[in-house]
């Protein structure tokens, strides 16, 4: 197929949305934390425990819904470490986030043989999946149907969250206070807004959403858990928050870019390019985007306050 035709191919864009959903869910969580002034880089780890919790409980219960709920629980539990360490104890969120990511990798790799007696990959017989919801009528539209209206329930959740978080952040008292807390905690405190409460809620929200991201990742297509299966998506979500300046529309844009890169890389694979090279495409695209959007991240350039 010529390139132009490929770019308008509905199946390409359908795989863009599929690649996009988990990253978008995690990135929205990261965005809420960023707005509350907590630098959240443990998305990768939370996504991983979410995926594990989802597969484990879906296997035990036979229900994707229970699996997804378990994913949320597991990731929220992990997020509480960050909330406690970084908010209550004023620890460094970057160092904590890294430790949480390592912890997540360790604990899932530990539990896999411990609970299910397998290593590397766990694919339960008759694996439970989150079914796709074909929206009546809409899913039959040409192009838009397969791209936007044949998603899993969590897919719709992710897409609806974009306008919803915008509305909450910029039009409601809770959103105003959350932004205030993130920007000038002292000022918010003197007006009687408890910064810790808002930060805790933001971190927990990011845990819940990133847990869902893990569920979508594990149960969206095949119902399988593989060691380290988040494979950088959580980090891409972190970058999406930065690139999108913690604004819902910007974050969606950044996630779209990543989703497109992944789908396109996958497509290139089909045309004979080595999988080892196409795997790198999303990361290379992300790096290029970082360079193009530079000067936005001055806050992260000087980490001289970074102490454990």
């Amino acid at each position: 197929m010529p390139l132009a035709e490929q770019l308008l191919d509905a199946s390409l864009w359908a795989s863009v949305t599929r690649a996009l959903i988990p990253v978008l869910l995690a990135a929205i969580g990261g965005m809420i934390c960023e707005r509350a002034g907590v630098f959240q880089i443990s998305l990768e780890g939370m996504m991983l425990v979410g995926a594990f919790g989802a597969v484990a409980m879906a296997h035990v219960s036979g229900s994707a819904t229970i699996g997804s709920a378990a994913a949320v629980m597991a990731a929220v539990l992990l997020s509480l470490i960050l909330a406690f360490g970084a908010v209550s104890r004023d620890g460094n969120p970057i160092v904590l986030g890294i430790a949480i990511n390592i912890l997540a990798l360790g604990i899932t790799s530990f539990l896999l043989p411990q609970l299910f007696g397998v290593r590397g990959t766990f694919q339960p017989e008759g694996g439970v999946r989150i079914p796709r919801l074909l929206l009546p009528g809409l899913s039959e539209l040409p192009f838009l149907g397969p791209v936007l209206f044949s998603l899993s329930f969590l897919g719709y959740v992710a897409l609806v969250l974009v306008p919803l978080t915008w509305f909450v952040l910029f039009r409601t008292p809770v959103g105003l206070r959350l932004r205030g807390v993130g920007e000038r905690p002292m000022a918010a405190e003197t007006l009687g807004v408890s910064t810790n409460t808002y930060k805790y809620l933001a971190v927990i929200a990011s845990g819940a959403l990133t847990g869902l991201a893990g569920a979508q990742l594990a149960l969206g297509n095949v119902g399988v858990f593989a060691e380290n299966m988040s494979s950088g998506r959580g980090w891409i979500a972190v970058v999406a928050v930065l690139l999108g300046r913690a604004h819902p529309v910007g974050v969606l844009g950044a996630c779209l870019l990543f989703g497109f890169a992944e789908a396109f890389g996958f497509r290139l694979q089909g045309q004979g390019l080595a999988v080892q090279i196409t795997d790198a495409v999303p990361f290379v695209v992300t790096l290029i985007a970082l360079v193009l959007a530079r000067k936005r991240f001055t806050r992260l350039l000087d980490l001289s306050e970074t102490k454990i």
């Binding site: 206070r177 002292m186 007006l191």
Partner: peptide, 15 residues
């Protein structure tokens, strides 16, 4: 003790 990116009105009515 003001929020730089918020408007004057938002700063005043905060909370």
């Amino acid at each position: 003790k003001l929020f730089p990116t918020l408007t004057v009105a938002e700063n005043v009515v905060f909370r």
